[in-house]
Structures are given as C-alpha cells and as structure tokens.
Design a protein around this nucleic acid. Structure first.
Ligand code: MN
Ligand code: MN
Ligand code: MN
Ligand code: MN
Lengths: 216, 216
DNA sequence: TGGAATAATAAGGTTTACCATAACATTTTA
DNA sequence: TAAAATGTTATGGTAAACCTTATTATTCCA
C-alpha cells in the first residue's frame, strides 16, 4: 500500500501547519502551497478519494484519522532532519525548513527511526515546534501568536511557524528566535506593524509576520 | 540554471555506474534503469538536447563534459549518504544503496558539502567505491572483476558494484564484502558459477553476480 | 435582501516520464 | 550472404500534477 507522492505529503503537511484539527478553506491551502485554488480543489478531491481528508463544500477541508497519521509522520521526518541539519551540519537556521522539506519525502520509516535514535529522540525542532512521536502524538505548544499580544508585555519566543526562507532570514537577522525574550513597545493602529524591543534593538514587525511567532 | 529531475539524475548516475568514459548501449542503460529500450531512447534524446550526453546511433551513449560533472555530483551525494547511513545511523549494509538513492536527489549543494565535512571528507563508500570530489575527480579502483579471475587465486574484495538490495543482501550474508579475502576454488564450465572460499565457508556465485565484485 | 466576494465545477491544455505495438535500419553470426 | 538479433523511430496512450478561462453555486454583508 500507499507510498504517498511528494505532492500528497505536502498537502498533508500543510494541513498540520495550518492547524491540526482545523477546518481549512481550499483557498488557504492553495495559498500555502503556491498553487491555484482550482488546482488545490482537484488535489483535494484526489486525497479525498484516498481517504486522507474530507471536504465539505463551502466549508473546508479536514484531515481524516488516516490523513492525520500520515501528515504527522511527514512533520516528524521534516523536524528530525531540521535537528540534524542544525546540530550536526551547522546549517544556517533560516535555511533549515527548506532543506529539510526536500529530505522529508526521501526518508523511509526505517531511516526516520534510525535518525531519531541518532539524534537522541528530540522533542522540538530548532524552530521551536514539537516533533510528533512515532504514534503521531503531539505536544501542543501552549502559547499565543505575537500578533495577539498587548503593548507593554514582555514575552518569550516559543516557536517560529514560518516556512519561507526569506521570512525566516528576516526574523533570524533580528534575533526573533526561539528562547529569546522580547517586549512589545508599540502596535500601530489599523493593522499596522508592531515595534518590539529584542535585546537592545528595536524591531519593526508587520502583523502578518507576527502571526508566525508563538510567544508566552 | 538547471535543477535536474530525479529521472535525469538517475540516467546520469547509471552512465557512471556502467563505466565512466564507456560508451553504453541504450539497451544496457534501459535494463539498468528498469525501463524499456524505447523509453530509454526517448530520455536519451532529451538528455542529448540538454547537452548532457551524446548518442551515436547503433553505437551507444556517452556523457559530455557537462553530463559527467552532473553525474559525478549525483554519485558524490549518493556515496556520502551511504557513509552517513552506515557509520552514524547503523543501517544494514545491503540497504545503504537503496536508501541513499532516494536522498541523493533531495540534497542541495550546500547540504552535500556540509555533510562531507561532517563525515570527515571520506574517500570511499561502504561498498568500497570511491567518492568523487567536488570537482568531479575520481580515484579509479584498480582491480578486476571477480568473473575475470583464475581458479586458485586468492584475492581481496575492493568493492561491490551491485545496487539491487537483494543482490547486496545475498553478498552480505555470504561475507563477500569490501576488505574480505577470498579464494576461487572452482569455475564451472559454460559460464557456470564460481565456487569461492570466504572465511571458512564455501560460496557459490553466479557469473553475473561475480561481475559486481571488484577484487585485487 | 440583493450585490459582492468567495468557492466550486467544468472544460480544455501542458509537461514529464513512462508504456505498447509496429515498422524499419543496422549489425552480428551462422 | 541471408537470417536473426539488436537498435531506432513512429505513433498513440497513460497518469500525475499543474495551468487558464468560464460558468455556476453559496455565503457574507451592507
Ligand atoms: Mn517537502
Ligand atoms: Mn536515486
Ligand atoms: Mn480535464
Ligand atoms: Mn507521442
């Protein structure tokens, strides 16, 4: 049964990244995957036929049990590779996601588990996100998104959810990294940018970027 | 320019595995890649159009300079991964080729070189084959194929060229592995099998398998 | 409640990399 | 040197995963 294609795995992973147990609209899925809504619609039908997800027209898409298992497995491979690339190969933080995103599809189960053992069964990736266990279980991050905080709060960065290398590079250069502390100095009105104090530097961060930063 | 497709990379790698600088017939290439000669012909035309190889009708296919560089780079990635899988993840010897054969296509140049450094710039893979340098240069193995030896000779295994997991498993189980010594006890007539002494066991080896074993 | 926005479906097209079958060309070998 | 084997090309098909342009359906909101 069932070697899933790279494309299929990316659709499943996107469903997890957009929120496990969320109902995701096809347009959001399409945007995340960089395809047209029409294409995403076609793919969703195919994945539906394979029993990986369900689509309720005009509502959105949700993973089935089978789909969630497969999806968590992709995420597991991805984040284990991120750990390896960071800790052993010393690859630049902002490039981890992209490089691991290729490897994840070329990684047999046997290899995944050998890698996990080699790495000492890490629980988090260098972006601060939890690594699903073999059985698919997930430590939820209980934090909130930086875009939903009040001026004056001092917070610790738990994780960065972004995936695009240029976004990650922007955050890396400004030290908005897991483990760092920051203070919200100002929130410009009308969905304007946040001004943060990170270390001794002021950082401007658009709300859409702030969405990617999980803090506590 | 030019991210090569997985399929393209496999054709190029096959050209190296069938003998760098050899002229290879399309049928041999087809057989190695598990496609029909007609399909191989089509692909060879495409790779020819990209300037990666040249095809002389009724003679065979040869890599161009550009093709040889790309091909050696694929082989480099493959064999570096084999080293990693063997030495660090302790993957079974017979499975190295197959697992590394997926990873090789998902490995960016930056990652390849970080991996090489991590591994200490190894010169040989666990199957005994040389790892091409970044510039494509190759230490040639100067040995001969086991199928071309005389009864009575005692030889050391330099490398195993096989790629199919079942073939590798067969050889592994009989200790026909790089570094091992063996003696040719008998060569059955009419292209019949060889009988070898490996350690204290007798091993029967068909000539087509013996082709894969490089000895000195 | 009606128009705008969003979502879905239909229809036709592309590219890559395969397949089979058939016809034809060249080389090998008996 | 003719038949057999091997190699090439032509033709037509398939499947996956994309695309665009329309058309139709639903939902949201002013
Ligand atoms: Mn990926
Ligand atoms: Mn491969
Ligand atoms: Mn269609
Ligand atoms: Mn055609």
């Amino acid at each position: 049964m069932s070697q899933l294609s790279e494309s299929t795995e990316m659709y499943l992973k996107a469903m997890v990244e957009l929120g496990l147990n969320e109902i995701v609209s096809i347009s959001r899925l399409a945007e995340r995957l960089g395809v047209t809504p029409v294409s995403a619609n076609e793919m969703v039908r195919r994945l539906g036929d394979q029993g990986l997800l369900t689509h309720t027209p005009y509502k959105g898409v949700a993973l089935t049990k089978k789909g969630r298992e497969a999806a968590c497995n992709v995420v597991r491979r991805q984040r284990l590779w991120e750990v390896f690339l960071y800790e052993h190969l010393h690859i630049e933080w902002a490039k981890l996601y992209e490089l691991a995103c290729s490897l994840e599809h070329a990684t047999a189960p046997e290899l995944t588990e050998a890698l996990a053992t080699f790495l000492g069964d890490p629980k988090f990736c260098p972006r601060g996100n939890p690594i699903p266990a073999v059985d698919g279980s997930f430590l939820p991050l209980n934090g909130k998104t930086l875009s939903a905080t009040q001026v004056g709060e001092t917070l610790k960065v738990l994780a960065v959810n972004a995936t695009a290398t240029d976004v990650l590079k922007y955050l890396q250069e400004r030290n908005v990294l897991p483990g760092r502390e920051l203070t919200v100095l100002e929130a410009a009105p009308l969905q304007g940018p946040l001004t943060l104090k990170v270390g001794d530097k002021d950082v401007a961060l658009g709300l859409s970027l702030a969405e990617f930063v999980i803090v506590k």
